[in-house]
Write a protein that binds this DNA or RNA. Structure first.
Lengths: 149, 149
DNA sequence: ATTTATGCAAATCGTTTGCAAACCT
DNA sequence: AGGTTTGCAAACGATTTGCATAAAT
């Protein structure tokens, strides 16, 4: 996820915010930019420490706005801090998370299309059987990275 | 998960606590009992409101002890409150979670063995490719229950 | 001009901790 | 006795919110 896709991304974000009657302000651009440049989901404190022009309260509020508009996605790995990433629909990349139980770092990964398809088929069935409206699924692999042994 | 399996369960819990130099006290028994009778992962406030003899601080501390001994498992669905359930190793039942995005309720479900096996195979490969020691995986299906429309 | 967004500081709320009393073996 | 567990109340820390000011359309 470099910065090469920034133009389209910004247009998409602008459109989505507009559709939700929200403005694409400097602070929101900074957040989208930060998330686009991250290798994986990042915590709010990471975002704040990388861009000192961002205030804490506005960042929390803006991430909520962006999430509501379907632009970002909040994930909670275990406890610690919440993490954010650009939504699958925006990046057009369905992926999963490899979480280090030691330091909390999160890496992205994908599984083969056919396995993903089988999974979806089964999950749709499970949702229906329980009277749920299926929205999406989440597959996390919990382990320990090299550094955390 | 009725109460029929209580005797073996208590023996197993007692053994694990003992192995970790911890006592199987009244409060801890009450927690294991409460989790064994739940249909799915429950929040701490749910536990506390169901058994008024439990104090908040001891419950938090005891759940941490039980988790450390591999008896219970903490899960965080989105934000709200943390939820606890008996560990897969204790119930001998590997399952996944159907989470309602509206009210937060969590239901258990399983997927066919062959799909679970394929998934495991792929996840082991992913972990290795990223220098991770694979511990376990987590598959959540997020949706909305009938009540939350 | 009017509505929305910002940022500081104060408030929230789930969770954790200090400490003295109660418990177990 | 000697270590563990308990429970109250106070402390914590991430997130939220009130409110007056600044920015966007």
């Amino acid at each position: 996820m470099g910065t090469g896709d920034a133009p389209e991304l910004n247009d998409l974000v602008a459109a989505r915010l507009d559709a939700h009657d929200h403005r694409y302000t400097r602070g929101r651009r900074a957040l989208v930019e930060a998330l686009a440049q991250s290798a994986g989901p990042v915590t709010i404190s990471e975002i704040l420490s990388r861009d000192s022009s961002l205030s804490m309260s506005s960042t929390y509020r803006n991430l909520a706005v962006l999430e509501d508009a379907g632009i970002v996605h909040r994930i909670v790995t275990s406890d610690e801090h919440a993490r954010y990433e650009l939504d699958d629909a925006v990046t057009e990349w369905h992926h999963h998370h490899l979480v280090c139980a030691g330091c909390g770092t999160v890496l992205d990964f994908t599984i083969p299309d056919d396995l993903e398809a089988s999974l979806n088929r089964v999950l749709r069935r499970v949702a229906r059987a329980n009277g749920f409206t299926s929205e999406h699924h989440r597959l996390d692999l919990i382990g320990r990275c090299q550094a955390c042994g």
